[in-house]
């Protein structure tokens, strides 16, 4: 679950070695960016957030504990910052809201709800992203960690500090909501 998830790597990080920090950024930047993008639904915001995540990691690097997994910590920080950013954006009534209609770069599902419509790959992705954007945060984070990042139940439970049972309930609900949101896309 870590790039060089051994105690030695964390010790190097804590010692403030620049090379170790570079490795950390290079090893995790795509995961952090991808998760941020899927959570926020905005390319520019995700880019800025990924940068802030690593700056925050650098600032708090001395508090890293060897015992806790590095990736667990990075995912947790990323999600926390995503939620905080989303709240700010909502309060600013700018760019992103919980509703898909106001998310730039996404497609209004109502337009795409025509049954049996053949969607282009990009359009399909945009509609899925719009459905993700519409999810409540609690369900969204579970869904993204499981179905986008491919983490195990145990890892997700650790990151979100929730019981596995709660995690399964949230995941099931998230998938059902997403399925309903994509009713016009999924033809069964």
């Amino acid at each position: 679950m870590t790039v060089k998830g051994d105690a030695r790597f964390i010790r190097h990080l804590r010692a403030g070695r620049g090379k170790a920090f570079n490795e950390l950024v290079l090893g995790y930047k795509d995961r952090v960016f991808n998760l941020s993008y899927r959570f926020l639904g905005d390319w520019q915001e995700a880019n800025e957030l990924a940068r802030e995540v690593f700056i925050s990691l650098n600032k708090n690097i001395r508090s890293f504990r060897v015992q806790s997994g590095l990736s667990t910590r990075i995912y947790k920080i990323t999600l926390d910052m995503c939620k905080s950013r989303l709240a700010n954006l909502r309060s600013e009534k700018n760019k992103i809201t919980a509703g898909a209609e106001e998310v730039p770069g996404t497609v209004n599902l109502r337009v795409l709800n025509a049954p049996n419509r053949l969607l282009e790959k990009k359009e399909l992705e945009m509609s899925v992203q719009a459905a993700i954007n519409a999810l409540p945060e609690e369900r969204k984070e579970v869904l993204l960690l499981r179905d986008i990042e491919g983490l195990s139940y145990r890892e997700i439970s650790e990151i979100l500090a929730i019981e596995e049972k709660t995690l399964k309930l949230r995941l099931n609900k998230a998938r059902q909501v997403l399925r309903d949101g994509l009713a016009g896309v999924i033809d069964v």
Binding site: K29, D30, V32, N34, N58, R175, R179, L182
Partner: peptide, 26 residues
Amino acid sequence: ERLNITVELLRNLPRYQASTRLLAEV
């Protein structure tokens, strides 16, 4: 079946890479 398709759609979403300049920017 619907849930399976939903999950498949999610798992097949393209994975994007962060800017190559991210490290320098950080």
